[in-house]
Amino acid sequence: MTAAAAELRVDGVTVRFAGLTALDEVSFTVAPGSIHALIGPNGAGKSTCFNVLSGVYRATEGSVHYDGRELTGLAPHRIAGIGVARTFQNIVLTAGTVADNLMLGRHGLTTAGFASTALRLPKAVREQRRHRERAYEIADFLGIAAHFEQPVGPLSYGDRKRVEIARALCMEPRLLLLDEPVAGMNPTERLAMAATIAAVRAELGISILIVEHDMGMVMRLADAVTVLDFGRRIADGTPESVQRDPAVIAAYLGQQQEQQKEESA
């Protein structure tokens, strides 16, 4: 680890797409070393928020600060350089082996250029070997070391999710953004993934911001929860307080109550 985790401050971020307000003055703070969950019904703006944090979208208004540095307006690769890594909701891996993908995560930490790589200069060869060892360690930590040399294409869905997280960890981030890490998994896989996420925080001491639909997992894992609905923040606090919040129940669990009413009627 090069530097300790720092505070992420999201301040009044608004994102508009041609008249549609995807995020409306959203503010929250992720404490250093915490697991912070971002939840909300479909279309609440969670993924938009992730895209703003990683520099893929630009905020119309508001600002994002990490470790005292303003991220708003920075290109994605610069934000990556500051130590913010992310995964995608629908797995986005590149063709090649697991090792190739993990080594892509080391891109910002390595320096070999076109000339030194093409000519296989000793410096470039040494660098690649050293970083490959670290990538293998991270693969081992995520439980995918057995697939290290295999192409990613034929791997199981759960393993590919793990490759994505391992690739993000290969960037040695201080803040990890996980977009629905257990979506599409069965209960056993979900439990294993939750354990992995907890282990990542415990071992590496980094902050994790997680978008997730699985409420049980959010309540178990998260230190703090921010709830979005229609692009607005409707609640923010500990999992217990958020769970009791009437606005959250109306937006999130209200649908279930209505269903129950319909069923009993």
């Binding site: 893929v56 990556a80 986005v92 590149t94 892509l104 910002g108 960037m171």
Partner: peptide, 17 residues
Amino acid sequence: RALGAVRDSEVAAAVMG
């Protein structure tokens, strides 16, 4: 690896640095 990432997903490549 960087060039392959640019081909497969511009966004993922940028986010990886």
